[in-house]
Amino acid sequence: MKIRTASTGMVMVVVLAFACVVLPLLLPFDPLEIDLHHRFLPPLSGSHVLGTDEIGRDTLVRLLVGARTSLLIGLSAMALSTLTGCLTGGLTGFYGGWTRRVLMRIVDSVLCFPTIFLLLTLASFGQPGALTIVGIVSLVAWMEVSRVVDGQVRALRGREFVVAVEAMGASAAHMLLRELLPNITGAIIVVSTLNVARAILMEAYVSYLGNGIQPPQPSLGAMLNDAQEYLRPDPWLAILPGLVIAVAVIGLNFIGDGLRVAVDPRQGRRA
């Protein structure tokens, strides 16, 4: 069952990724092209397959470009937060003691903040845009990775093969990188996959609340914000971006859950 959902997720994500890389090149519209003669076209009207928005821009192209941005932001934020999380979690798990206590205090405190607060205040620091979002999402998301890596490293630290290598005089770096890390790649991949999903959601929230990708650049969250005003006449403007987010995030979550089973069968049976 899990395998099937995982491959379903894989298909969803690959198709979406492929569509948003290739289709914009083939469609005869530019995501920023305004056409005041054809505003609020409903889906399936002529050459605008999914209709147009309040200033006549093609919805399909904007969705695809927005999704592309979302996926890129998700991937970059994942890379950054995985790196940070592995570094901090690896160190605290390995050395324990004060390092660990300090980090855990910080993590606890950050978890006290409502996520949205962090995202919004952090967002106001930089020029709103994709890079800033990657930065702030990573700042919020690294803790999850850090916790997982910390836990795993601590669990493995006492195992025979690690103790044996240590007894043979291996350096800390060698033990961390050559012995411990390879053994927890699975767990890291799982959190990372789920983090891509989370990052995409966070981008949507931030852009929806107006602090993310700025108009006129298309973004799924911002499109939802725009659509809010036209809910009565044109609900599809709100429904479509949500569906695209859903496809991406559901797909990634399916993959993550499936991988979790592959990595830790015991956990999988319960989950």
Partner: peptide, 15 residues
């Protein structure tokens, strides 16, 4: 439950 967790709350609100 995966689907519910994957969709932003505000979208449900709008829909």
């Amino acid at each position: 439950s995966v689907v519910l967790l994957s969709i932003p709350t505000f979208w449900f609100g709008l829909v």
